[in-house]
Structures are given as structure tokens and as C-alpha cells.
């Protein structure tokens, strides 16, 4: 989707949404799953996407904005192809998460929350990912990577960059 194009769900998505709405007493109840779908389809929840979701569900924009801003996993800004979320909560911190974050940022030349200029990698910090036994944990696009160290990350970044170039 390019920036200027108005966001539109595919026919199948719209049918999926319809079926979802029918399961609840009101369309507002379906907002959370529909926002996940929108984020999946459009990459992130721009204001235009939020307006579109409001229109599809018959809600006001503020009702959508309230939910989007409440949950940190809804993104209002675009992110890289690989979203790397490093847990920096207690267990991971004790196992070197802070150093890991510093290493990743140095290697990619960005700050926490930023995306590399080529649009490949985004590094963020998150609170407890719930996988303390494998600390430090990095979640990369919905996949958990446990016991991560600098070498593991370097290998991952190299591999991903190569795959992308190919």
C-alpha cells in the first residue's frame, strides 16, 4: 500500500470481519481483532487506517483511537521489515539485555524505537515477554528468540540482509 492510497480491506477480509461482528452483541466488541487485521494488512495503523476501521465498524474515530493508543502493540508509525523487540525486564536485564540493545543499536546505527534507513530493522524495548527461562529474549516478528547474545543477533542480521538482497 502506498501512502496516498486510501486503505481498503480485501473482500475476504470484509467477510471475515462481518462474521466476527456477528459473534458479539455490538460491533465495538470486534474492534480489537479488526485492528489486528488492519495492522497485518496495512503494516501499521495510520490515522487514515483508523478512520477506515471506524467507518467499517460504524464507530466514531475517538472510540478507535482510544483502543489503538491504549495497547502498545498497535503501531501508529511504520516499522522495519524485521521488528526486533528486546525484553529489558528484570530477568532479561540480569542476563545482559541492556548490553544486547546497545550492541544492536550500534551495529544498525539507530536508536531504540528507530528504523534503519533501508527499512529493514526496527529495535524496540518491551516489558516482560513472559519467557524468563530463556532470558534474554528478543521477539522478532511474532517469533521468540531465546538466550540471545551479540553473536546470535549478528548472524541473524547478516542472514536477513542477505536473504533480502537475494
Amino acid at each position: 500500500m502506498t501512502m496516498n492510497e486510501a486503505p481498503r480491506f480485501s473482500e475476504e477480509r470484509l467477510q471475515e470481519i462481518q462474521a466476527l461482528v456477528a459473534r458479539y452483541p455490538g460491533p465495538q466488541s470486534a474492534l480489537l481483532p479488526v485492528l489486528h487485521m488492519a495492522q497485518e494488512d496495512f503494516g501499521y495503523l495510520s490515522l487514515d487506517v483508523q478512520k477506515y476501521v471506524a467507518e467499517v465498524l460504524g464507530l466514531t474515530l475517538i472510540q478507535v483511537r482510544e483502543v489503538v493508543t491504549f495497547y502498545t502493540m498497535f503501531r501508529e508509525q511504520p516499522c522495519g521489515k524485521y521488528l526486533m523487540e528486546v525484553c529489558t525486564n528484570a530477568s532479561c536485564m540480569l542476563n545482559g539485555a541492556d548490553e544486547l540493545v546497545r550492541h544492536m543499536c550500534d551495529k544498525l546505527g539507530i536508536k531504540v524505537g528507530e528504523t534503519t534507513p533501508d527499512g529493514m530493522f526496527t529495535v524496540t524495548e518491551v516489558e516482560c515477554a513472559g519467557a524468563c527461562s530463556g532470558a534474554p529474549v528478543v521477539q522478532i516478528n511474532n517469533v521468540y528468540h531465546e538466550n540471545v547474545d551479540a553473536a546470535y543477533i549478528d548472524a541473524f542480521i547478516e542472514k536477513a540482509s542477505k536473504e533480502d538482497a537475494a
Binding site: 466514531t60 474515530l61 475517538i62 472510540q63 483511537r65 482510544e66 493508543t69 491504549f70
Partner: peptide
């Protein structure tokens, strides 16, 4: 009118008008 709502949460919570 429904043009006010609550954005963000916790410490960042604000009342906002669209």
C-alpha cells in the same frame, strides 16, 4: 457528539478531543 475520549494509558493517559 462523542468527540472526546481517553487516549493512552497509565501515566500517559489524557483526555483528548478529536
Amino acid at each position: 457528539t462523542g468527540d472526546i475520549g481517553v487516549l493512552n494509558r497509565g501515566d500517559h493517559m489524557t483526555i483528548a478531543g478529536i
